[in-house]
């Protein structure tokens, strides 16, 4: 279902090399203490490759979001380790993790998380401003990225003036503007209708077509499974099975 001629991003599918982006080994994570402990992850082993769209699927509460939070460096695991682009989280201090998030990770959220008082272009420019890019340059780059997600007409609109699909496009542009190597998406289509969700997934799929970029999507929406290159099925804090294509998953 991927048509390389429609790819709005300046990446060439021919150059894609599938190298190891994230290597998670024996990840455990629990919340609470005493008798109230909930084991969210129980020894997760997972590899995520560049040039691929990897989906984490499974029922609510199975640990999908906890896993991408750890991969993105916004949550610390209790045990095990994640090696991202060759560097272990164990070797990073808080400052290095902050730098890692700012330079290497793009986020797409279920509820978009756009700042309501900023225009679309200003929202998209945030990752660049965090990296202390000159404001004028940041806004120019943000406007260019919004053009890639077909929102060049609405760059000065506030989030409240945009539809859900448009807001998610802004969020995707924001996740891409600083050219990160890992994009993590948490239920990116669950707030959208089927048609809009489909368009958003197309966009995300093309975003994964860049060499040296990996894309991880957490979802429990079976309608978008077809967009995945690899699917990791989770249940009760474990990876139950990894499928190399949606077809393999259907066969099982």
């Amino acid at each position: 279902m991927r048509d390389k001629n429609k790819n709005p991003f300046p990446c060439d599918e021919e150059t894609i090399t599938q190298t190891l982006a994230v290597h998670c080994k024996g990840i455990t994570k629990s919340y609470g203490n005493g008798n109230e402990v909930v084991n969210a992850l129980n020894g997760i082993n997972l590899d995520v490759f560049t040039g691929q769209l990897t989906m984490l699927v499974g029922p609510s509460g199975c640990g999908k979001t906890t896993l991408i939070s750890i991969m993105a460096g916004i949550l610390d695991q209790d045990d095990g380790d994640c090696v991202v682009f060759g560097k272990s989280f164990k070797d990073m201090n808080e400052f290095e993790k902050t730098l890692y998030r700012g330079n290497q990770v793009g986020f797409v959220f279920q509820s978009f998380n756009l700042i309501p008082t900023l225009t679309a272009v200003e929202n998209v420019a945030i990752p660049l401003l965090i990296r202390r890019t000159d404001r004028k340059l940041a806004l120019e780059k943000a406007a260019e990225t919004l053009k890639n997600v077909a929102l060049s007409e609405r760059i000065n609109a506030l989030p409240s003036q945009l539809s859900g699909g448009q807001q998610q496009r802004v969020a995707i542009a924001r996740s891409l503007v600083h050219e990160p190597r890992l994009i993590v998406c948490d239920e990116p289509t669950s707030s959208l209708d089927h048609e809009t969700g489909f368009r958003i997934m197309e966009l995300l799929q093309y975003a994964a077509l860049c060499a040296d970029r990996a894309l991880v999507i957490v979802t429990h929406d079976p309608r978008i499974f077809d967009f995945a290159d690899r699917i990791a099925k989770m249940d009760d804090g474990r990876i139950v099975e990894v499928f190399d294509s949606p077809e393999d998953m259907k066969k099982s």
Binding site: I74, F95, T98, R101, G102, I115, I126, I130
Partner: peptide
């Protein structure tokens, strides 16, 4: 707070 959290996730340091 949610927006500050978003900024923090996206790499904004506590100092920022």
């Amino acid at each position: 707070l949610k927006h500050f959290g978003t900024l923090k996730a996206m790499g904004a340091s506590n100092k920022t």
